[in-house]
Design a protein around this nucleic acid. Structure first.
Lengths: 156, 156
DNA sequence: GGAGTATGAATGAACG
DNA sequence: CGTTCATTCATACTCC
């Protein structure tokens, strides 16, 4: 599709760990920022609230350009990948009688006291209300009559 | 990295907007579908009723596979994210300007569902929802001398 | 320079 | 409705 011209913030600070001159286009965290974020994560913070996100973002803005959404995404991704990796490992199972004893200890990183690892091993509660929208649930007919919902396609 | 066998469907090239023939997994809207939905959203529609959802879904089904729930979720997500984004930005970026309080003027909490009667389909640009997550590149030249950012985190 | 990887960003789906 | 999860796309970075 179209390439959206991302912001051109030429930060030649090279504050990155490798010292490579990084260009902008997407947020590129500095070493300090990553360090702090990682620390927080290891402290047990996994899903910061909006307030926390803003606080963190504000603090980290000292090291360089950063926005709240960056912090938000960072935690989202970090948690997701951590979980993903763990998932992969726990399922393990090598093909040919490798250690059947699953080491589900998962006590390597547990430093947080609020890391609630609820076990969701199977897809429970797949509440599929795919087409329940038929004619139940809510009914706010008070909004307005939908305008001309004439979605006539022109290019066909 | 791509060894996870979670994929149950043929992983198509998935060119968003390219009208790929993905038929499994989660709904992948085509460019036209997104366009129409965005247009509706910009017209003021935020919480469509069941009828509207079905109508929209029916219309959009022309462009590709779609279900009512997709439309429902789409509006839900779009509205929620629009809000979330706005909130985050407004609180986040405060470089040095004290914000002349131009946000949220007066009556807005009520968020009246005003819908513009004139709904034109394909008149304007097709810039599909790129919004402004970016583009707020302000200067973070704060005046704080040395950072106190040990980030002991006062997250309360 | 391209392949492979790490990771930021986006969004569909769903929970509480 | 706000928040969270899972999957995927896009891009920066590393290595050969």
């Amino acid at each position: 599709m179209d390439e959206y011209s991302t912001g051109f913030c030429i930060r030649t600070a090279a504050a990155r760990g490798g010292g490579t001159g990084s260009k902008c286009g997407r947020w590129n965290p500095t070493g300090e920022q990553v360090k702090v974020l990682t620390e927080l994560f290891k402290s047990g913070l996994r899903t910061p609230t909006t307030d926390q996100i803003q606080k963190i973002s504000a603090e980290l803005s000292f090291y360089g350009k950063i926005e709240s959404k960056n912090v938000f995404y960072w935690f989202q991704n970090h948690k997701a990948r951590d979980r993903q990796k763990r998932r992969r490992i726990s399922v393990d199972d090598l093909p040919t009688t490798p250690t059947p004893s699953k080491q589900f200890g998962s006590a390597e990183k547990n430093e947080a006291e609020r890391v609630i690892e609820t076990l969701q091993l199977f897809p429970v509660k797949s509440r599929l209300y795919a087409d329940d929208w038929k004619e139940n649930s809510y009914n706010h007919a008070m909004e307005m009559d939908h305008p001309t919902l004439d979605l006539r396609l022109s290019f066909v």
